[in-house]
Design a binder for these strands. Structure first.
Length: 949
DNA sequence: GGCCGAACGTA
DNA sequence: GTACGTTCGGCCC
């Protein structure tokens, strides 16, 4: 028989507050306060010492609070409202807690919307159900409710106790009774009566611990005490109990621990091995914890030392995992075996799978459909995975198109979805998707609001954006992730459905093949989640994942479903006008050329211009072709070449017609009559969204002709469109991040920022100097180079360099920002936004100077562009709740264009909605990152997108 | 049918 | 000089 398993659950968040208040202030060699971190480290040290003792841990995890809001705020909005912000010198220690945990190679769990207490309760219950003993490392009184809860599992009795490491005291049932006067199962009733000022649990006014205990002892429960109140002798206590009975009941709910939370990491993955000494030593050294370092002594280099990279296993693409990324290795799983999958074709089997998924509290899922376009796709089936080799496919729309072939047996679609709905919508079951936004949209169209959801594609992005090396892709698609992390080659869509003309819809794929493909996707998603989720906390990506990108998934999904109305007739009219003009120009161009040719071919055009017509200044690029881009043609036009002028006009009109007026008409969804773009959450390495099919982030605005296309984006009758833009957000962020007093001042005063720059640079402001200043400001954001700036301004490189020097002289913070950013990217391999979003630059140390310089420019830009992306994403996440709280439930958020949000709303709501939108956007960095510049938001409204600007 | 480079639309 | 996506012609298979 296996030895008894013993799980330790460390209440990390509560611990550091206690450690902070109990220990003297202490700073590390870099001057960062680390007193609480030191206390936390010694606590982990003590636990690690017990590792191989008889009653020591066999499994261990640290549990942290991930976010300020939880389900308790939905029940009682004042919950934890009185809690003061943490002291300034404690704040920087929070992220270090994760570093410390990582240094011990221990798993660290946190989950948005859940408090550490609830996760601890859920893990404790799950472990005792399996017959494991549990020790909760905490002294939190709420958690005392759990003590003693025994189960009779396979291994006999399993119990929960607590360990207060500060007092070095075990807390078991007698200790709980000593503290509360009642056994653990009644602690919740006592807590409900006495309330808690720190958490702002109301309780009953005038009742403290003493009276609460007495009442519960006498009556046996909260409800009994409340029921007995009218018969008590008249007193203040009696009146309070009667008057505030509801408050007590509410408090009872608030102190109740949630034991059925989805478990983001499986219990088996908390298995403890040995603590590898190297990362620990590095951590102790970095923070100057010399006494501990000494005690670690010659543990370094011992035979237990673990090797980071096992060549037999698949290797993460990009930079090899470096010091600090080690952890207790996850137990190995059997290889993927597609023969184990089940095709679910009848209701009882389906019901059994749903029941098992409910019990597992974690299920990977995937939908199969007829199209890549979620707004047009027909549902063909759903796959579920509960573990390795434990996956199924539920066909729902197979067959039926061929009248002569027999339709395979399947559970009827509506019936199956009705059965699946409680699972997919259950708060207690974590659903894991790969690009879950797609599946959310498919299921939303069938009336199912899936949640809570984790997304492995988004996790991969938050961990590894930009991390690709020669020969190894850096993408976040399922096939690529499976190859990179699991060493597994998945069946591809092409393998199953073919490609090109011979593509068959998924609903026509035979069920055995469909099952292999679909269930494999779900199992791969399950396995990826198991690998990636723990990496989030280990690699400092939790904040950006939990607070920004994860909650954004359903928000963006909803925007895609909303779509935007376009005026087809208006587009058709423009298209016809453009076509006429294009034909006219074509005739003139062929006339001027002396022969017909394909104007759209740069190759042919170049030959006509420079070979046949003999214009000078033809430059051939690396492909041996003449360049005929806008700059060249404008120069020729200035030199009097009429043909160049006509070609420029022809190009503008052709572009507008083919890319916009024609393509947008084709993109109108016949069912909704609207255009639904698809946003990629992992499209831009910096963290921006990207938009495809169609791209609604590059609708023209700069020229009058192009602007007419924006007029075709319109509101429904009775509604208007509202466009809200951040003004100069990247420059504002640069001013903040590089700490440039002159620029910050200008933004604070609402000055014209380019004019201010012109004044600083040239001593006077006029059209010319302001324009040059504007160019320089942008050049800074894009990673400046003398040649680039020179080219833009039309001055020699040395003159441009002089301007750059002058800029640095006037705004010294900028030079320092560039220098320190590059320094840090070279040292760590990645840049970081103010919110901790990483962007990797594997070529920053390339031997190729061009490549290296390119990476450097991108690395200077990424924190600024990425922080701006983080901020608007945070605004998007908060927007609908804020509007709803203001009673503005008819406002719909339709589009995001990097620094702009577009809404559709009833005209009457404009004043109220403008206020909310402005406030949410302007405050979106707070409270995580207080900015030293205000964020300006400009709002316009109109019947069309064009008019709203 | 699939891929690449040139050109050009946006922030 | 940053970050994207789409269209087109030209070329490959």
């Amino acid at each position: 028989m296996e030895p008894k398993q013993h799980l330790y659950l460390v209440d990390g968040s509560a611990y550091i507050f206690r450690a902070y208040h109990r220990l003297p202030p202490l700073t590390n060699p870099q001057g960062v306060p680390v007193g609480a971190v030191y206390g936390y480290t010694t606590m982990l040290w003590k636990l690690a010492d017990d590792l191989h003792k008889a009653d020591g841990p066999t499994h261990l995890a640290v549990i942290l609070d991930a976010s300020g809001k939880s389900f308790r705020n939905d029940i009682y909005d004042q919950y934890k409202a009185n809690r003061p912000p943490p002291p300034e010198d404690l704040k920087p220690q929070f992220p270090l807690i994760r570093d410390a945990t990582r240094a011990f190679s221990l798993p660290c769990i946190e989950e948005q919307g859940l408090e550490a207490d609830d996760l601890i309760a859920s893990y404790a219950r799950a472990a005792t159900e399996r017959g494991w003993d549990v020790t909760i490392v905490s002294s939190d009184k709420d958690l005392m409710q759990l003590v003693g809860k025994c189960k009779h599992g396979e291994d006999g009795e399993a119990c929960i106790d607590m360990l207060d490491t500060m007092k070095n005291q075990r807390i078991d049932v007698p200790e709980v009774i000593e503290k509360f006067g009642v056994p653990p199962e009644l602690v919740g009733d006592v807590l409900a009566l006495m309330g808690d000022s720190v958490d702002n649990v109301p309780g009953i006014r005038g009742i403290g611990p003493k009276t609460a205990t007495k009442l519960i002892q006498e009556h046996g429960s909260l409800e009994a005490a409340l029921a007995a109140a009218p018969d008590m002798k008249p007193s203040k206590l009696r009146d309070s109990l009667i008057e505030q009975a509801e408050m007590a009941r509410l408090s009872r709910v608030l102190v109740q621990l949630k034991e059925d939370c989805p478990l983001p990491v499986a219990l088996d993955d908390f298995k403890l091995d040995t603590i590898p000494p190297d990362p620990l030593a590095a951590f102790l050294e970095e923070h100057g914890f010399n006494s501990l370092l000494k005690r670690l002594g010659d543990g370094r280099g011992s035979p237990e030392r673990r090797v980071d990279l096992n060549p037999a296993k698949p290797v993460t693409a990009g930079a090899a995992p470096t010091a600090g990324s080690s952890r207790q290795p996850l137990p190995e799983l059997p290889p993927i075996d597609r023969s184990k999958y089940v095709c679910v074709q009848d209701e009882p089997t389906l019901a059994a799978w749903i029941e098992r998924a409910m019990a597992a509290r974690l299920v990977a899922f995937d939908t199969e459909t007829s199209s890549i376009d979620a707004m047009r796709a027909e549902l063909a089936g759903i796959s579920l995975a509960l573990g390795p080799g434990d996956a199924c496919y539920i066909p729902l729309g197979h067959g039926g198109t061929d009248m002569f072939a027999e339709r395979p047996a399947q559970v009827e679609k509506t019936r199956a979805l009705a059965l699946l709905r409680p699972l997919l919508e259950s708060e207690a079951v974590l659903k894991i998707g790969q690009n879950a936004k797609y599946d959310l949209n498919i299921l939303a169209r069938h009336g199912i609001d899936v949640g809570p959801v984790d997304d492995t594609m988004v996790m991969s992005f938050d961990l590894d954006a930009g991390r690709s090396m020669d020969g190894i892709g850096g993408g976040h698609g399922m096939d690529e992730l499976a190859a990179r992390h699991l060493g597994h080659t998945t069946l591809t869509f092409k393998d199953i459905c073919g490609s090109g003309k011979k593509t068959i819809p998924f609903g026509e794929v035979p069920l055995d093949r469909a099952t292999e493909y679909a269930a494999e996707d779900a199992e791969v998603t399950w396995r990826l989640h198991r690998l990636l989720k723990p990496r989030l906390s280990e690699e400092g990506a939790t904040r950006v994942y939990e607070r920004v990108d994860r909650p954004l998934v359903p928000v963006v999904a909803q925007m895609e479903r909303h779509g935007i109305r376009v005026d087809r007739d208006k587009l058709a009219g423009l298209s016809a006008t453009f076509a006429e003009e294009i034909a006219k120009l074509e005739g003139q161009i062929h006339e001027l050329a002396g022969q017909p040719f394909t104007i759209g071919s740069p190759k042919q055009l170049g030959e006509i211009l420079f070979d046949k017509l003999g214009f000078k200044g033809g430059k051939k690029g690396k492909t041996g072709q003449y360049s005929t881009d806008q700059g060249i043609l404008e120069r020729l036009s200035g030199e009097g070449a009429a043909i160049a002028d006509r070609v420029l006009e022809w190009r503008q009109l052709s572009k507008l017609r083919s890319t916009y007026t024609e393509a947008l008409q084709a993109a109108i969804n016949p069912e909704t009559g609207r255009v639904h773009t698809s946003y990629s959450l992992v499209g831009a390495q910096t963290g921006r969204l990207s938009s495809t099919e169609p791209n609604l982030q590059n609708i023209p605005i700069r020229t009058e002709l192009g602007r007419q296309i924006r007029e075709a984006f319109v509101a429904e009758p009775g509604n208007v469109l509202l466009a809200a833009d951040y003004s100069q957000i990247e420059l504002r962020l640069a001013a903040h991040m590089a700490d440039v007093p002159a620029l910050k001042e200008a933004f604070a005063e609402g000055e014209d920022i380019h004019a201010r720059t012109a004044m600083e640079m040239f001593g006077e402001v006029n059209r010319d100097t302001r324009g040059r200043a504007k160019t320089i400001n942008f050049a800074i954001l894009y990673g400046i180079s003398r040649w680039g700036l020179g080219g833009r301004l039309g001055v020699p490189a040395d003159e441009a360099q002089a301007m750059i020097d002058r800029y640095f002289e006037r705004f010294p913070g900028i030079r320092h920002y560039i220098h320190s950013t590059l320094e840090s990217v070279r040292a760590n391999g990645y840049s970081e936004t103010l919110f901790g979003r990483k962007c990797w630059f594997p070529r920053i140390s390339s031997n190729n100077p061009n490549e290296r310089a390119g990476s450097e420019r991108a690395a200077i830009n990424a924190p600024i562009q990425g922080t701006s992306a983080d901020i608007i994403k945070r605004a998007m996440v908060r927007m609908m709740p804020a509007l709803e709280a203001a009673g503005l439930s008819h406002v719909r958020m339709l589009l995001q264009v990097h620094d702009e949000l577009v809404f559709e709303l009833p005209e009457a709501d404009v004043p109220a909605a403008s206020k909310v939108i402005e406030a949410v956007m302007a405050g979106a960095a707070e409270p995580a990152v207080p900015l030293s510049v205000p964020l300006g938001v400009e709002i316009g409204t109109g019947l069309s997108w064009g008019a709203a600007h």
